[in-house]
């Protein structure tokens, strides 16, 4: 037997490994802190929760700051509506903005109420057509910007636009939901990519399959739950 053969024989000893639960418990016992050896468990850590909370807060504060006076940039952000546009949520969001902008310049009460009615219809349509899953983060940003302009114009109208409060609130809620979904989607995609390189038990493989199905059905929260379950096994 030559040296290379002996080294190869020695390598078989690499199969000797400690129990995973023992490794985890020992680390916890020594440091007195709850620790995670499985990478995905950072999903449950305060850092992760904090990061998610911060993203949601930033998004919400974005929506919440709409009533603040804005620079001329925002005025220019209200685009002219081309009538031949596709009648999707973009069309209705822009229409609502433009109509509300116009309402601010009208003095006659009857004409103003007509315009407010028009704005209400546009807002309701926008709520109806707003996607729960935007195509990409850039699109979410654009939607948020548009909602921001609508709220600004609505605030300028005051009591006269009272009937627009409800659809605007609905629009805000739906936008919030959309942002949350977007956060979950990004998270799930990252986790699925990482799991591709891991050795999984049969049970974990089954959970991964279910998580992928949820992801394909755009149910990102359920997918994330499955991933958490999987990584805790």
């Amino acid at each position: 037997m030559n040296e290379q053969e002996i080294i190869a024989k020695l390598r078989v000893l690499e199969e000797i490994k400690p129990r995973r639960d023992w490794m985890k418990n020992t680390l916890r016992d020594i440091t007195g802190q709850r620790t995670y050896l499985v990478n995905f468990n950072f999903l449950k850590t305060p850092a992760f929760s904090f990061a998610i909370l911060m993203i949601v807060l930033v998004a919400l504060s974005w929506l919440g700051l709409f009533n603040q006076p804005k620079s001329d940039d925002f005025k220019t952000a209200v685009l002219e509506i081309a009538e031949n546009d596709v009648y999707d949520y973009n069309y209705y969001l822009e229409k609502a903005s433009k109509v509300l902008e116009k309402a601010k310049t009208i003095d006659q009460t009857d004409k103003k109420s007509q315009v407010v009615k028009e704005a209400k219809e546009a807002l309701e349509k926008a709520v109806e057509k707003l996607p729960s899953h935007p195509k990409n983060p850039k699109e979410s940003g654009k939607i948020v910007e548009k909602v921001k302009v609508i709220k600004k114009n609505l605030a300028a109208l005051g009591e006269e636009a009272k009937e627009l409060t409800k659809p605007t609130k609905q629009l805000e809620e739906k936008t919030k939901e959309m942002i949350e979904n977007e956060i979950y989607r990004i998270k799930v995609e990252a986790e699925l990519a990482m799991l591709e390189n891991r050795t999984l038990t049969d049970e974990q493989k089954e959970l991964l399959k279910e998580a992928k199905n949820d992801y394909n059905n755009q149910d990102y929260l359920s997918a994330l739950e499955k991933i958490l379950q999987l990584t805790n096994q």
Partner: peptide
């Protein structure tokens, strides 16, 4: 300190265990 220790632990636990086990 905890982060530093955890890093060392993860890096060496299997080898130290194996060395002792053998």
């Amino acid at each position: 300190l905890h982060f530093h220790f955890k890093k060392i632990y993860k890096l060496h636990i299997e080898k130290i265990y194996r060395f002792i086990y053998i």
